[in-house]
Design a binder for these strands. Sequence first.
RNA 1: GGCCCCAUCGUCUAAUGGUUAGGACGCUACCCUCUCAAGGUAGUAAUCCGGGUUCGACUCCCGGUGGGGUCACCA
Length: 480
Amino acid sequence: MRIRTRIAPSPTGIAHVGNMYTALLNYAFAKSQEGKFILRIEDTDRERYVPGSEQVIFSALRWLGIQIDEGPEIGGPYEPYTQSKRLPIYVSHAQALVKKGKAYFCFCSPERLAAMRKSQQQRGKLSMYDGTCRRLTAAEAKKRAGSEKHVVRLKVPKTGSTSWRDLIRGDISFENFGLDDQVLLKSDGFPTYHLAVVVDDHRMRISHVIRAEEWISSTPKHILLFRAFGWKLPEFAHTPLLRNPDRSKLSKRKNPVSVVWYREHGFLPQALVNYLCLMGWSHPEGKEKFSLKEFIDNFSLERIQTTQPIFDVEKLRWLNGLYIRETKDQKLIGLLRPFVPKGAKASMLRRILPLIHDRIHTLEEFNDYAEFFFTKPQVDAKLLLKQSKHSQLETLRKLKEFMALLNTLQTGEFTAFKLEKRSRELAEDEWTPKKLFMTVRVAITGSTVSPPLFDSIHILGKTETIDRVKHAATILKTSS
RNA sequence: GGCCCCAUCGUCUAAUGGUUAGGACGCUACCCUCUCAAGGUAGUAAUCCGGGUUCGACUCCCGGUGGGGUCACCA
């Protein structure tokens, strides 16, 4: 059998990490079996449609390195891959089902259905369609369908059960009496998700439906539909659902869920993919860091867990740091571009980067360490004194001494090594190197946290450094 | 509430019915050190509860409890 998997996102405007996780699993499964991975846009809800969503999904997949074999734009043997362009197919299939007696026209108004549900709930009963139109004769239904607004409903058996062997979870079974007569075709002529997904999965020869756990309860409806059509069932595999820290379904209310958010906050696609691989799956050798290719090479559905993983940004940050550290400087400078101050010279970035490279976990953090190279810092007199652990006068004296030292250094001597060596000579009993260095650090960076001091001074240059120390001294002098 | 799924450190996870229940993130301490990182070392911490099967249960079965999903002319 040819392996064909798919993801079928609805165009809601964002590339949700949950969707991308499902995409990753479908992609890995297909590629590990030399199969095809298909993208299909499920835009059958006109009210929720957000223009441009397809592009968002495309670019997110591309960014993550997940390649689609068939889909909108790139096409394929089962075009079109956008459901709104396949309307006649769904309509004719729904009609065929009515003709076969497997489905029926329903003329009940949304108002009546709402009232019915309310009453059912008040009486503590199951909320289900009461079957009013199911009891209509075929002739009467056909007659009314000519003039009245209607939907098409699936005639779900009242007895028996529907079950399947889930590739991840094993046997799952539902009693049919608990299943509702699902609407297949809406009154606006659009299919519901249930009809569209079954028709398309069949027509597009999808062999394995791999989707999140939240779809388990609609699977029996889909199976019943496949059977009503007389079609062969695909295999089903229900993956774990990504969670918020409170274990509810991952949602944008409680977590960043857009892939774009992660990109814009300096996460690398390899890290995000790697992290997602660790959700519900583990490398056979226990490795934590591995590539998408290695994931595919080792992938099997059997290794997918059934428990509910919490999406933990902390571990993602750790992984991201690993990937940043293994990225070559030259490459990293390109990636850093959107995150550095505007107009920052490449030559400058090349000099700064080695000092920052091992210190950041996200690209966004570059500025936390490097901003002072581009902008004169705010210096706080209190912070200076706190680091010097000396009086105002004594601290001023030492800063002047340090400036004098800088002045004596010739251009050729202005290196990190030389600077450190000479600065250490400035140390006295009560002026340990640590006190001196920290005071200078605050003077030139404005912060107690910075890249290595003398490398930083070397990059800033003699004139700029003296200027900053002088400025810090002025601030100290004028503070009370 | 009905139905369905799930249950190992705080988090991600490993463990053919036999392990001192392993690894990773985080956290803590120490080393390194001009700060912060990175790196190194050590430490912290878990089989939801109760029955059963078995010589032996994290593992199999049953029942609780807990969490989650789903019950639309949304997907």
